[in-house]
């Protein structure tokens, strides 16, 4: 089971339309990615809440077919 980087990016963008998303494939196995997501909608939210917003956008794939996504979230400067 694996996910394509483009699929992850699309899901995050669908869920967070204003976000800039950068995905790095860590292992080439479709299972280990790092993602940096910057969105105005994160402003004022805790890191946990920000990450939960990204996980919600991933519609339950996180922890399922997507085993590892090292996540970094920020608000625009």
């Amino acid at each position: 089971m694996a996910m394509e980087a483009t699929e992850i990016e699309r899901l995050i963008r669908d869920g967070l339309p204003d976000a800039t998303v950068e995905i790095r494939d860590l292992a080439g196995d479709g299972n280990h990615y790092a993602a940096t997501v910057v969105s105005e909608s994160f402003r004022g939210k805790s890191r946990v809440q920000q990450h939960q917003m990204v996980y919600a956008a991933l519609k339950g794939q996180m922890g399922g077919i997507l085993h590892a996504l090292a996540l970094q979230t920020n608000v625009p400067d």
Binding site: R47, V48, H51, A70, L71, Q72
Partner: peptide
């Protein structure tokens, strides 16, 4: 209190 997973704890 839930602090987070590996990413957040490492970042903190």
């Amino acid at each position: 209190e839930f602090v987070g997973g590996c990413d957040i704890v490492r970042e903190m």
